[in-house]
Design a protein around this nucleic acid. Structure first.
Lengths: 354, 354
DNA sequence: CTGAAAGCGCTAACAG
DNA sequence: CTGTTAGCGCTTTCAG
């Protein structure tokens, strides 16, 4: 191993006794090269331990075979987010069958131009942006300089013209609510997410769709921040605002002690964390789930099934989201047309709380 | 936004009325350029919205300003690993102050050559390998073609000649055991990790060092697989092999019911997961911690503090590991000499179990 | 302080 | 089927 740089294509050409063009052809698997030439080149490649310089290839071919998955630098949060790992897995899986290499780019939030320049500097053929949060306006301008696929509906209307794949939060929320209504519950409350995130907005809208359809009470809503704590607080507010009313409640077999009852008999929480917090808070008030309040969450995160009772929730197929985003991006990179909006189906997972 | 490619340096030169060389100089902040020229170039850059092509720059300068953090494709596992997120955070933090861009490379385990070629193809200036597991022999050969820093002591002796940063598992384990011994416990058992991983090997060795120093019983060891389940099973085996003996046990205030007692009064588990499993299993046998068996874990993972009682453990400074690895790599890239072995200190976190 | 010229290693027409 | 010829966009001596 001589410390001096790697062998070049030119050296391989010399070694094999052919021209550089021929070497390039066989290395890239281009058709029509004499079998002998192919063999000679392969031999030379092996002998020299040649590895093509991708940078040079990129410059010449204007392709990189690399796609970037951009994650915000709040990496700690990102990696802790149970939703994220499966998405990455999906992306990696979809890419495994292609010749693309994945490039998880940790975008410095303090120096956004660093990322911008990287992306625009010809380092990647396309990018995937998982915009769990709303603040990624920085990628707005890149859209027409580089194929980009967003995960999650963009909040910014300008981005509606971009390509994105998402779950149908609104419809899923509506279905979950209808499920609650269909199981005999009369007053379905909701703990909505932040209204500056699409997931928060859409899930609330879906709940409202279902409630309005049956002439229900759309004031049974409080907001949380997608955290357990905020879920607990929200349900307390709900309880305070709507104590046990004359409404024919379904609470009968409750093992509750000095329960004050609740003015609602079902709850749709915009994510599992908040559902967990809510159930805990209800219990502290002597209300149990599902007996007093049936609860449905959203996400089916890693903890949903381990709660007691296990949480009934709307499962988001995160891996499929990753796969789907990737396939879409690859299609865009190869110049194909593709729909701007791709929706992947969710699924209600019935467990113990509803 | 004209769909045709980005403006080139040449166009900027024309726009600014200077040569390409001059544009290059000001763009790269090289000294000695006439103020007027600088201004003209900046103006042109802004007007044209010029972003340098990093690929071309790379080819010409033979630098990329990118470093890769390689993670095995068992991504699901990796991202789920509570140890991983802080390492990434550390890397990102250290890099934020430099001009390097981070490139988290998900290495396809089914197609290792893909990664190899990427690394050797001039895409990055150096690489970080977090070798939590032992199987990464694939990076062995890269060492003298590209600066690489390993996280965690390499298992393979050949790698000892590489650069790596690690915590001193052996010494930390020894200290933890000594702590147990120093708090009046006589018989300290251990649940060791797999003996094909450095962390498993070294932590066991450290425990033995301490036990032998006081003439203790080094047969009080069982092995686990770093999982909760395996920790529970290991402690059961320990219990079966060493039931309550005549040894003056420290078990006094135990609230245990029909406790059979244990032939050891302290336990050092090679990681927190196993410690958690062990405590659970002990409890099932009517033994409580710390009353009957004092327990110290290793890692201080995300769950350690939430156990009941909270787990006393050896904290691994994962973020610092990331920072340290990065600083080392950057130094290597700039051609500086650096020590092959860097050890970062651990810390015993005293909580409720010992 | 600045321009001219020569590549970095590879791909891609274009003739043969 | 294969060699020749031009570059890809930028950095970097080397003169001036």
């Amino acid at each position: 191993m001589i410390p001096s740089g790697n062998p070049t294509l030119e050296m391989v050409a010399a070694e094999a006794g052919v021209s550089r063009a021929t070497v390039s052809r066989v290395v890239n698997g281009h058709a029509s090269v004499a079998p002998e030439a192919v063999a000679a080149v392969h031999a030379a490649v092996a002998r020299l331990n040649y590895v093509p310089n991708r940078v040079a290839r990129s410059l010449a071919s204007r392709r990189t075979d690399v796609i970037a998955l951009i994650v915000p630098e709040s990496t700690s949060t990102v990696f802790a987010d149970p939703f994220f790992a499966p998405v990455v897995r999906g992306v990696a899986r979809a890419l495994a069958e292609t010749d693309f290499t994945l490039n998880l780019l940790v975008a410095s939030e303090t120096r956004p131009e660093k990322t911008r320049r990287y992306l625009l500097g010809g380092n990647v053929d396309g990018a995937l942006v998982v915009s769990h949060h709303s603040g990624d306006h920085s990628y707005l301008g890149l859209g027409d300089a580089l194929p980009i696929v967003f995960g999650g509906r963009p909040l910014n209307p300008e981005l509606e013209s971009r390509h994105y794949v998402d779950v149908d939060n609104r419809h899923a929320a509506q279905s979950a609510t209808e499920y609650l209504l269909g199981s005999g519950r009369r007053r379905v409350a909701t703990i909505a997410g932040p209204q500056d995130m699409p997931a928060g907005i859409d899930r609330l809208a879906g709940w409202r769709d279902a409630v309005e359809a049956v002439g229900g009470d759309v004031s049974l809503a409080e907001h949380g921040a997608f955290t357990q704590q905020s879920g607990a607080e929200a349900v307390i507010r709900l309880l305070d605002r709507h104590p046990a009313s004359g409404a024919g409640s379904a609470s009968t077999g409750s093992a509750s002690t000095g329960s004050a009852g609740a003015g609602f008999d079902a709850l749709f929480a915009a994510n599992d964390q908040m559902a967990a917090g809510a159930i805990q808070a209800l219990r502290n008030r002597g209300l149990s789930s599902p007996a007093d309040v049936a609860v449905v969450g959203f996400d089916d995160d890693a903890f949903a099934a381990t709660l007691d009772p296990p949480l009934t929730t709307v499962r988001q197929p995160a891996t499929e989201l990753g796969v789907s985003m990737t396939e879409l991006l690859v299609r865009l990179i190869s110049g194909e047309e593709a729909p701007h909006r791709t929706i992947i189906p969710t699924e209600l997972v019935r467990r113990g709380t509803a």
